[in-house]
Nucleic acid binder design. Structure first.
Lengths: 203, 203
DNA sequence: TTGCGGACTGAACGGTCGTTCACCTAGTGG
DNA sequence: CCACTAGGTGAACGACCGTTCAGTCCGCAA
């Protein structure tokens, strides 16, 4: 095979599993986890429902497989940006905002899933993903309190969640019909400026 | 009876129906529409599942009954604030922000429902509620383009959605455990300032 | 007392869904 | 050639869910 299962790097090959997962994510995002049946997913990739059990242990496992890498990628990307600007919280914040906006615009379906359906997971997986989320939030909190010393950790956390709500609003105008043609770069700029404005403190 | 069904004013009496609806909304918000069964709802209000059909035509009707008044109240409140400041878009925006933040902080469960489960409605009801939402968005868009003439309608719409995402982040730190004790007024102030900062344009 | 309507129960029905199982097929390395 | 494996099928099962229905209970007006 092209890669042994023991290497920990990201598998470069696009397997059938990945293809199924991408379709499933899109369906979960638009119709909700409980609104999509295994037969539905199977039909969308031209197989029967039970065939999916050759790739995933079950329906919940599909959701976990979709959500965990997302949280992991966000956390890794966030950590990297913060560590790259150890003495400049302002630059770190700008890097975080650019990173997150780019991510949200590139993966609106996954973002929607992450926001909507996390609670449909069994306890164990949910706790694991929530921990990754929490660590990502803490990266933001660290930068925010460094930048605005008047903020308590709690206040910074509220602001971080608020910023996520802002940047994660991408699914609302991305998944709609092709009516709007504000360029993607234009939208990205709007969101970056809005987020920085929201976090800047009283003007 | 105390009020004929023909009067359009809000019914002042708190009926059993209202009580059931409030419980159902909370359950929908935390476990998802499909994650709650009629028997679950019945059990939470100490009746059997089928008993609910004496108050609602069905499960979907409960969701509609929960969502429509919310959209209506938001639209009414938004209209009122805009009309109260016909020649001062800056004041109008401040009023809109204060109104929406207050609403979101007072009704986190309903907000979560509105954000998460609207797509689970049958076409007709969904279209109706979406129309109310759209009109509410337009109130914001009007104020925004009046305040910042460089914005196109489309850009203003993106910013409006972004602002909603920010202000509607309330469920994320409200429904959690009793760990945080940032006063409600403190959180409200943070959210108001963040929203205004997000919409103010480049600093 | 009688009649009536609102609220509720318990049983039941029809449908859907996640999952399992036995079986089939094509490709592949020894 | 053979054994093995990955991937897939179709039928079936058990559970759950939304909904219906016949019947019960109770407060209240006539």
């Amino acid at each position: 095979m092209s890669s042994t299962p023991t290497d920990t790097g990201a598998a470069p090959v696009r397997t059938r599993r990945d293809e199924i997962l991408e379709v499933a994510v899109r369906m979960f995002a638009t119709r909700g986890y409980h609104g999509v049946s295994m037969d539905d997913i199977g039909r969308a990739v031209d197989v029967t429902g039970p065939a999916l059990y050759h790739h995933f242990k079950g329906k919940e496992a599909m959701l976990v497989a979709a959500l965990r890498p997302v949280s992991q990628r966000l956390l890794n990307g966030g950590r990297k940006r913060v560590e790259a600007n150890p003495d400049d919280p302002r630059a770190a914040l700008h890097a975080l905002v650019e990173f997150h906006v780019e991510f949200a615009l590139s993966n609106p379906a996954v973002i929607a899933l992450h926001v909507h359906e996390l609670d449909r997971l069994p306890d164990e997986s949910r706790r694991e993903i929530r921990m990754l989320q929490r660590q990502y939030v803490e990266e933001w909190v660290t930068v925010l309190v460094a930048l605005r010393s008047e903020l308590s950790q709690e206040q910074a956390r509220v602001l971080a969640h608020a910023a996520f709500g802002l940047m994660n609003s991408t699914p609302y105008f991305t998944q709609r019909g092709a009516g709007d043609h504000s360029g993607r770069a234009d939208i990205a700029r709007l969101l970056r400026e809005a987020t920085l404005g929201a976090l800047a403190g009283t003007t």
